[in-house]
Amino acid sequence: MRKILTIAATTIALSLTPLIGTHASPAEDLEAFKGYFKKKFSDVAFDDYKNGVYAIDSASREQWEEMEEFPPYELAIDDGAALWGKKFANGKSFADCFGDVAGIRGKYPYFDEAKDDIATLEGTINKCLTDNGEKPFKWKKGNLAKLSAYIAYQGRGGKVDVKVEGAKAEAWYNEGKTFFYAKRGQLNMACADCHVYYAGQNIRADKLSPAMGHTTHFPVYRSKWGNLGTLHRRYGGCNKQVRAKPFKAQSKQYKALEYFEAYMSNGLELNGPGSRK
């Protein structure tokens, strides 16, 4: 069974790019992406895609808005603020790594030319800890998600503005794009199957969210989790749902996917953290 899953997970069908051409530039991809959703949900304003599935799910929107009045992530933001203010053993703190807290969220993810790597907010938080001789936080939830939530909260109102410039950055972008459109897992589904082609349809009783806007509101408090989780935690969950072996948080695959998805959300307002079912 494990073998089947692994084989299935690694079976990547590259034939799947009807929406976005393989050789199109990132800018052309973005235009096509925006155009696709504009046509698909003609009555949804572009700005509203920051609200994820609630942009297109009027039935649960009111309930969600009520939940956001007294958000379940409020305490996590307070905990994150405390972590932000806490001094490391060497007397420094996160502010020494990041600078002004309000300007952080909008900078990530970005392509780090020198390292040929994608810098994510969560990856940089842990790098700040280890650079200062501290133990890194555990990935996916807990302190890492809490600090990420505080930084997201302080960065609310900014706009997603991810840049893909140069051949190396484009290689990362293309890796994320390939991941996004590739079929995987025993159930043989691509991210795009549910979140582009069938966005707005119901899977059992739940509506499938549009991919445009996926990254604006993370980390999120999910009722299903009962706590806060990062974007890569969600990616892992999605991969498990199609019965593929999930990749590790901050793996090359998920960093590339985050880079691609965030680029596809360019121009939308940053409104994390969020709450979800």
Binding site: M1, I4, A8, A13, S15, L16, P18, Q186, L187, N188, M189, D193, C194, Y197, Y198
Partner: peptide, 13 residues
């Protein structure tokens, strides 16, 4: 070839 429907037999679901 691009169907979202899982291959229940081929993938031994």
């Amino acid at each position: 070839p691009n169907t979202i429907m899982p291959p229940f037999g081929t993938h031994s679901v």
